[in-house]
Design a protein around this nucleic acid. Structure first.
Lengths: 176, 176, 176, 176
DNA sequence: TATGAATGAGGATTCATTCAT
DNA sequence: AATGAATGAATCCTCATTCAT
């Protein structure tokens, strides 16, 4: 009986509050932006008490940073894994574009969150100058271009600028 | 004597408060973003009293909207005028790119203001759904492309999407 | 008519908000202590809006400090003036005791405020280590004793310690 | 074996949580004051869980009251016992002063706790009107004086007021 | 008409207390 | 019985907006 009850309880959802909160935060931040998102908004979206937010994140800034980092890591990880299956640099680039587009289409709120957090209030960036969640993403795209360039398949260009422009293009398309 | 002094003052400077305020607002909004800009910030930058802001603009939202519209109108007007001097569609496009780049370089705060206000919180857009200062700008670029397309000089593409992508690329480049 | 209306308005109470707020603050702090006094309490007692408090005092700490300083200055000033009328040191000391007792009796809330703020939370003192409103008061009593000592009327004692003890005695009597 | 180990543990240390918590509480309250002391502070100082505090004390107020009462009882008990060894009232008084001074010097945190908790916010006293940990202490000193008075060794005075003043003097000296 | 002091709704954060384990 | 994560009421403070001068 002991064993049973334990099993029961475990199957009864050992809530991962940290993840639950970040998931909610991403959704709300994506929809309303940093400034218009209140901690109460996040708490309600995550269905937890306000105080609980502060058990897992020191303050609102840290909640945004953690959520952004986690999201980038997760989503970029998925795309990277799929791209790596392609041996040919050009195929890899193509796969990336497709995956990126799919991400934008299927998880618009995540996409919006990723690309739009850049334009946060300067207040936030003054407090957190090191924060740039897109850095890893830009780097990934840049690497894609570099591999393609080395293979002689695309012309000599500033791959970083190109990466930024590509992401920027997609970003703007989403917003409009 | 009374009359004279009055005349003198008027001829000395018929202050255009509305314009003065918008000029200041653009600078401050561009630097700090919508949410981190207080009405006091704007009043101080414009060297007017807070109350004066409300004599010319209903509220903070309207101040942003008016400032953005006015800026787009002014800057776009300048660029348009220069572009129209070019008869050939391709020259016109080239001229546009150069002018746009110059605007970004010489008035970074205006550029930043124009391209970054788009990403306002949904809160702002929910309150002002009709607000899209870039609309005119996008349309202008779109027209450029269409003229070029009609002349057979560029391939058949979704000109609007292209316009958005071009602007988005530039935007992202500025931010990074 | 102009003159009249001006006179009228002036007589119509040109409210001194700063003073009004400090008066209220002293009363409330004296009754409830620093920690249990909320800014809303003070605002209500002063019959002003909460925001008004912050137009005159940077924060709650500064409100307490200003109120305490002002009170000491005012009350000590009164007592000092009366004492100075006495030429003889012993008469002066006696006058002081009487005045102090009168202060305690007639304005118990001020008295309580003066003598009890010393025991504030250490949190407050850690933030404001230089704050010691009783310093001036202790010094005044100390000087009284010194004058008396010089005149040979009282024995050789540590006048500062004596001053502190006297004030402490009265303080404790009030509290009980 | 079970029995043995149990016995061992018990004899090793039958933890008295209640006492352990009060000891910690006194230290922390004395150092930080009632309001700046959090239940977590106390729990950490006592090396117990937060929940444990609530198994032994209904709430924070009761924890303070119990700690104060217990301390007074203990310390006063010690001093009383030593004083009682003196047959002569004057010697007894002298012994008391020495003991009190020693307590202040050797356990400043206890001393501070005893004498400073009196000045709690009225909020606390409104909730706990019966709370006056110094009552017993004042009574003890008062009795000392009365015995001395009866023996004709000191003049006729209000012994209670005298007791209060003496304690107040010492209190103020500690604070400064 | 320009002004800025007064205002209070709203938001981030803390912490005593509860309760499931 | 001990524990500590979850909770939300309560508090300080900001800032858009109003209005009397």
């Amino acid at each position: 009986m002991n064993l049973l009850s334990k099993t029961k309880k475990k199957s009864l959802k050992p809530v991962n509050y940290r993840q639950k909160i970040m998931d909610a935060a991403i959704r709300v931040f994506a929809r309303k932006g940093y400034n218009d998102t209140t901690m109460i908004d996040v708490a309600r979206a995550a269905k937890v008490g306000i105080g609980t937010l502060y058990n897992y994140f020191k303050n609102k800034d840290e909640l945004l940073i953690s959520s952004a980092d986690k999201t980038i890591e997760t989503e970029l990880g998925k795309i990277r894994k799929i791209c790596e299956k392609q041996a040919d640099p050009m195929d890899r680039m193509e796969t990336y574009f497709i995956q990126h587009a799919m991400l934008l289409k299927e998880n618009p709120h995540i996409a919006r969150f990723l690309v739009s957090q850049l334009r946060q209030s300067e207040g936030f960036f003054e407090r957190n100058p090191e924060f740039n969640p897109l850095r890893h993403y830009v780097n990934f795209v840049k690497e894609l271009f570099e591999t393609a360039k080395e293979s002689g398949r695309i012309k000599d260009v500033d791959t970083k600028a190109l990466a930024i422009m590509v992401i920027g293009s997609m970003d703007m398309l989403i917003c409009q």
